[in-house]
Design a protein around this nucleic acid. Structure first.
Length: 731
DNA sequence: GCCG
DNA sequence: CAGTACG
DNA sequence: CGGCCGTTACTG
């Protein structure tokens, strides 16, 4: 252990002996991090992440006749066919057969190109639709709910006709065919106009993901997306219905975004999507088995739609053979409005009809054996998922909240979370962070307790506080907490490395109030003394560029010892942060045992860097034979600021799990691990294990067998979690 | 604190 | 062992 | 009412 005092004095000296090493750094091998991690992700998945965004805004066929994507009364023409129409040659009228041929050709082309060049989506893979008239004028204008039916007059203006404002051209860029999770679904929004920017965006996105937007409530509607400000009663009143026809999914505005987040249709019955005053049919959540007793008049009514649904969906979802496609021409010509109901979205009572339709489709086209796959395809999309509740199942950038509608509320809640963190009330802290994460994803401002309560992760207590924050822009509880002297002291002490709640309380109880008191009177461990000596250093952020310098030095030194070593910069840096709390480095060497790596790092690298005065303190270093980490402090040659630096030693076989662990963030990790445990597995920094034997509930266990440790992506797969690049793991 |  | 720390 | 990540790893 290095006495901090001496290191400060020795700054000038160290610089000299250190220059040679540091000089090498500037040419550095930046590419290495990129090469091993980032580039891998880029190739393997990042570019697939959201083609819609990466697509250029190329506009096409300006002269295209308006109305191609119009929500005409019978406009159930799937978005795909419409875009295809445009894609081929603008025309207004086509025979169903013509249309169908183009459609299938396009579908085939799309899927082919996607499968061949997955990594480089180009325009030709996507159908671009411009100038969608339907988005300019809400058809329902004059007919929106009378103001008496609405909570406040302020809710109405969004129904305004925007025609006077001039045309707004909208690019609708259909996502690749295999990603159109809403394909064949018919959405009706409530309110059903695009005058509200947020809703407009949701509508556009829904269409891009394959949905059709119904301008009127009709019997093809599969989903009603209700804005947060409205409840079920208002919906019924507006529709002039006593109750909705069976089989229609009623969800709030969060639904579409979450589905797109998942790249699949998620469970519609979770409270997260619940519309106030609406009790979803219990069956819709867990369709699983058909319920013969429920087959009824309703399904008869919907039957024709569903039959077509099956045929069409087999075509669009599974690159069905042409003969199957052409077979659907009949049904298409009968009605240009084929509806597709995802089995998941259909209550049990419809399952029989669905099965019947599938069987009929099979019978009439025995060669088209894709039907099985088709059904499977749907089943794959269905999620019904309890898993949806896990943070790791969603994309989090952590950035949407800063400018979002709830920005201020989030700031105050974060202060509360920090407060409980300081108090070491881990559970409350966790709850607040959970609530913050949920609120950050909301697309509208939450200003009432009721609205807040509807957000999964926010309960009555936090909901009340949210309302208070919005009303008063303050939180009395927080003001009080801030003024509490003992809390201030504890907070101050606990920011010392090596001082937790326990030590802080002891110090405070002993009457110490300042850091200086501790230095002079308290009994401190070596680490705590270092923590105090560099209190400000350790509590300040490290700019991204400096992280790279520290990493570069370690990398250089290690390469000098053995060029086969690989150093990856982890933590918030890997998540793309502009600054970090410390420097996290993962060290591995392909083919090497952990023992070899440990020996090299502990016996050679650390001493070397210590000698060069780059490493200036050791706070926690492996002493056991199976140790894997080194925690300490580092200091650049031309600086006097100490930084916390962590080295994690990893054998190649555990690289994936280590990447996962060391990338975080902590909430994401905990979420992944909790999910693993609920699935009878366990996840730690070494790997994902299955067949874990647990004693009571969770608790004790037997090792289990290793499922995956080497490949980060495979761990996601094994857990059934959609791949999240590091920058999407900021929960 | 929130959730089941 | 409790305490602290790591993501 | 009990669970809330890791049989995490390291210090003293």
């Amino acid at each position: 252990m290095i006495a901090p005092q001496t290191s400060r004095d020795a700054e000038a000296k160290k610089k000299i002996g250190f220059d040679a090493l540091y000089a090498l750094d500037n040419e550095s091998d930046e590419a290495e991090d990129d090469g091993l991690l980032a580039s891998l992700q880029k190739v393997q998945g990042k570019t697939l992440g959201d083609p819609t965004i990466s697509l250029s805004r190329s506009r096409r066929t300006p002269g295209r006749p308006p109305g191609s994507l119009v929500r005409s009364k019978s406009n159930i023409i799937p978005a795909l066919s419409l875009s295809t129409q445009q894609h081929q040659k603008p025309r207004n009228t086509k025979s169903p057969l013509e249309l169908l041929n183009e459609l299938s050709a396009a579908a085939a082309a799309t899927s082919t190109s996607n499968s061949i060049v997955k990594d480089t989506p180009t325009l030709q893979h996507h159908n671009t639709v411009t100038g969608v008239p339907s988005l300019e004028k809400p058809a329902d204008d004059g007919k929106m709910p009378p103001s008496s039916a609405l909570p406040a007059s302020s809710a109405i203006p969004m129904i305004k006709n925007k025609k006077g404002k001039g045309k707004q051209v909208v690019d609708i860029k259909l996502v690749p065919e295999d990603q159109r999770i809403f394909q064949g679904l018919h959405f009706y929004f409530f309110p059903n106009s695009d005058t509200h920017p947020g809703r407009r965006q949701r509508i556009i996105k829904a269409i891009e993901y394959g949905a059709s937007w119904q301008d009127k409530f009709n019997d093809t509607v599969t989903h009603i997306i209700v804005d947060r400000d409205y409840d079920f009663e208002q919906l019924l009143k507006y529709l002039k219905l006593k109750e909705l026809p069976a089989g229609i999914v009623v969800v709030n505005e969060n639904y579409t975004a979450t589905c797109m987040d998942f790249y699949k249709l998620v469970d519609t019955s979770t409270i997260e999507f619940r519309v106030k005053g609406y009790e979803p049919p219990a069956s819709s959540a867990t369709i699983a088995q058909p319920n013969p007793s429920q087959a009824s008049e309703v399904s008869l009514q919907l039957k024709p739609v569903k039959r077509k649904a099956v045929v069409l969906s087999s075509q669009v979802t599974s690159e069905a053979s042409l003969n199957l496609v052409s077979s659907s021409a009949a049904s298409l010509s009968n009605s240009p409005a084929p509806g597709v109901l995802d089995p998941q979205q259909v209550p049990n009572k419809d399952e029989d009809e669905l099965d019947t339709a599938i069987r009929q489709a099979k019978e009439s086209h025995p060669l088209a054996s894709d039907d099985e796959d088709d059904v499977e395809g749907h089943k794959r999309r269905k999620t019904n998922n309890w898993q949806d509740k896990f943070q790791c199942m969603h994309k989090h950038t952590g950035k949407s909240g800063d400018q979002g509608p709830n920005a201020h509320t989030l700031v105050v809640l974060q202060e509360l979370a920090d407060h409980y963190d300081q108090i070491r009330d881990q559970w409350r802290c966790k709850s607040y962070r959970q609530a913050i994460s949920a609120l950050r994803k909301q697309t509208t401002k939450i200003s009432t307790k009721e609205a807040a309560m509807r957000v999964y992760g926010i309960g009555s207590s936090i909901a009340e506080k949210i309302e208070e924050i919005v009303r008063t822009t303050h939180l009395r509880k927080l003001d009080f907490a801030k003024l509490d002297e003992r809390q201030q002291i504890l907070n101050r002490f606990m920011k010392i490395y090596g001082v937790g709640l326990h030590a802080a309380e002891n110090f405070a109880s002993a009457g110490y109030k300042t850091i200086d008191d501790l230095l002079q009177k308290a009994e401190l461990t070596d680490n705590q003394r270092i923590g105090i000596d560099h209190y400000d250093d350790f509590n300040s952020r490290v700019p991204r560029a400096e992280v790279e310098k520290h990493a570069g030095i370690v990398k250089k030194a290690l390469k000098g010892l053995d060029k086969n070593y690989i150093v990856n910069t982890m933590g918030s840096y890997r998540r793309g942060a502009q600054d970090s709390g410390d420097i996290d480095l993962l060290i591995t060497k392909p083919g090497a045992s952990i023992d070899e790596i440990r020996t090299t790092v502990m016996d050679r690298l650390v001493p070397l860097l210590t000698k060069h005065k780059f490493l200036v303190a050791a706070l926690a270093q492996t002493s056991q034979a199976d140790g894997t980490k080194w925690h300490g402090a580092s200091c650049l040659p031309d600086s006097s600021t100490w930084r916390r630096i962590d080295l994690l030693l990893v054998p190649e076989e555990e690289l994936g799990a280590a990447l996962l662990y060391f990338t975080g963030n902590d909430i994401f990790n905990r979420s992944m691990r909790l999910l693993a445990s609920k699935k009878g597995m366990r996840l730690n920094q070494r790997g994902l294990y299955k067949d874990v034997l647990r004693d009571y509930g969770r608790e004790k266990l037997s090792e289990g067998t290793l499922v995956e440790g080497k490949d980060e992506r495979k761990i996601f797969e094994a857990l059934g979690v959609p791949w999240r690049p590091p920058e999407h793991r900021i929960c």
